[in-house]
């Protein structure tokens, strides 16, 4: 495994005002890898991903992307470098149509090749003129991911993609993630254990703001043995 890490997080600390939320996080992501973070509600998973995407300023530590420091960069710069964050609350722009949502991402990244979006999510082509407000939860998730893969990101941070989705849609999502990882690394946050075990090659367990375990063994991931750490 001589491949260099695409993302490297070193001694990351974060806080909301006075209350500390992340303590000395160290982790890495390899190119085209599928990593999952598991942990209870409030463990700090979202905070961690937001720090990596520069949406929050960490109080200490560093985040390296291809060897370059991300801490202190503006969120839009990070996104343009190819590290995209997909939010937990499935918030597409309600007032904008699917087309406008995609246009916006194209405008930001300069990538107008929508075929790759439709290749993964043919349904979006049919919904192209529908407003974000009238999309179902699954369709919103498709749009969020479709929007993010414009500009050929090298890392996707996906926060709880399965939340509130029907099992059949979760199955589709697993396939999509496997396909996407041919082109980029994916770091997802999951509460849904079966989803995690089907998607992740490596799992980080998180508890009360600390990484408590890293599970690399495939069998361990399959039988959810990381649960003991949570």
């Amino acid at each position: 495994m001589g491949m260099p890490n695409i993302v490297e997080v070193k001694n990351l600390n974060a806080a909301y005002g006075q209350s500390k939320v992340l303590f000395d996080i160290n982790l890495y992501i390899k190119p085209n890898e599928r990593v999952a973070i598991v942990g209870r509600n409030g463990a700090g998973k979202t905070t961690l991903q937001k720090c990596i995407a520069s949406l929050l300023h960490p109080t200490g530590g560093s985040v390296l992307y291809n060897g370059a420091e991300l801490v202190g960069k503006q969120p839009y710069e990070v996104a343009r470098l190819g590290l995209k964050y997909i939010d937990q609350d499935k918030h597409v722009f309600l007032d904008l149509t699917v087309r406008e949502n995609l246009e916006l991402s194209s405008y930001a990244t300069g990538d107008y090749d929508w075929d790759k979006v439709f290749k993964h999510f043919p349904k979006l082509k049919i919904l192209i003129d529908r407003k974000g407000a009238y999309l179902s939860g699954g369709e919103r998730q498709m749009l969020m991911i479709g929007r993010a893969i414009l500009g050929d990101p090298k890392v996707l941070l996906v926060d709880e993609p399965t939340e509130g989705l029907a099992p059949s849609i979760v199955d589709d999502l697993v396939t999509t993630f496997h396909e996407l990882s041919k082109d980029c690394a994916i770091m997802t946050v999951g509460q849904n254990l079966s989803f995690v075990s089907r998607v992740a090659e490596r799992v980080y367990a998180m508890k009360e703001g600390r990484l408590v375990a890293e599970i690399t063994d495939e069998a361990d991931i399959k039988n959810h043995s990381y649960c003991e750490y949570l």
């Binding site: 949406l55 839009y76 918030h91 722009f93 309600l94 991402s105 405008y107 930001a108 929007r147 500009g151």
Partner: peptide, 15 residues
């Protein structure tokens, strides 16, 4: 218009 909806998400898109 997207920013009026949610400015945070506009940032994450790379704008």
């Amino acid at each position: 218009r997207a920013g009026i909806d949610d400015a945070e998400k506009v940032k994450a898109l790379g704008i």
